[in-house]
């Protein structure tokens, strides 16, 4: 018992200052950032055919489809977007550019949700990486409870469904039940490329193409998987406590 205390004290404070301070590089490896074209006019057509999921078109990069496989890196794109790439609308995921404020006009925070959020994790067919990144938010490095965010054991006690994975035919009904069980006001956060667009599994028979065809989605967090910081940013965008909104207020 005493030795555990000694152990805790000797490690000091590990917790990130995010969102008060910017995310550190240690928190964010290269693939934690969205790839953005260095010069859209030339980079995009050059990189388009390299993309295995068709995220790159002549005009834009659909971050909702990107699985951060890095094949386009070196063909005029680089992982230099902001880690705070979560958006309130699906179409904004096509407008992410380099720079500190990736999307110019974030939608207003969702009405009715207070400062404190209670999350219920719903896996509708993930590879576990997103599940584990969401759960990593509870570790001392991110400690999401300091922001008044908690995990619950039942959707009945939650405000927010955090959905990971590409919706399989088998999980459509359980997902609906979880959504119905959520008390109003309710919100859904799609974490990772899979629920947003099907990600690498898009187009497979027996899988839904996207989560927002099944339940209304309030925040999209791109990435494969998104880093914990990116997920945190997405959660905070629900009630307007994210860095971007804070900076705007200042």
């Amino acid at each position: 018992m005493a030795s555990w205390i000694e152990q805790s004290v000797s490690r000091g404070i590990l917790t990130s200052r995010y969102p008060k301070a910017a995310a550190t590089d240690d928190e964010t490896p290269p693939t934690g950032r969205p790839p953005v074209p260095e010069s859209p006019a030339t980079s995009l057509p050059a990189a388009r055919d390299r993309c295995p999921v068709g995220a790159i078109t002549e005009t834009a990069v659909d971050q909702g489809k990107c699985i951060r496989c890095a094949r386009c890196v070196g063909a005029g794109l680089s992982f230099s977007g902001s880690v705070e790439a979560a958006t309130r609308s699906r179409s904004d995921l096509l407008r992410i550019s380099a720079g500190p404020t990736p999307v110019p006009d974030g939608a207003p925070p969702l009405a009715g949700l207070g400062r404190s959020l209670h999350l219920f994790l719903v896996d509708v067919g993930s590879c576990n990486a997103c599940n584990l990144e969401v759960l990593a938010l509870a570790n001392p490095y991110y400690d999401l409870q300091r922001l008044g965010i908690f995990f619950t054991n039942s959707p009945r006690h939650a405000d927010v469904l955090v959905v990971v994975g590409v919706p399989t035919a088998e999980m459509v009904e359980p997902l609906r039940r979880a959504y119905d069980a959520l008390p109003a006001p309710k919100a859904v956060v799609a974490v990772g490329a899979c629920p947003i667009s099907g990600g690498v599994f898009a187009g497979t028979e027996g899988l839904a193409s996207a989560l927002d065809g099944l339940v209304p989605v309030d925040v999209y967090v791109p990435g494969c998987p998104p880093t914990p910081t990116a997920i945190l940013d997405g959660l905070l965008k629900l009630n307007g406590r994210d860095r971007e909104t804070r900076e705007g207020r200042r």
Binding site: G32, R68, A70, V73
Partner: peptide, 14 residues
């Protein structure tokens, strides 16, 4: 370059 080693062992990965 990736927390879960996706692409790490593939040609053209991070």
């Amino acid at each position: 370059g990736h927390r879960w080693l996706f692409g790490a062992l593939l040609p053209g990965g991070p």
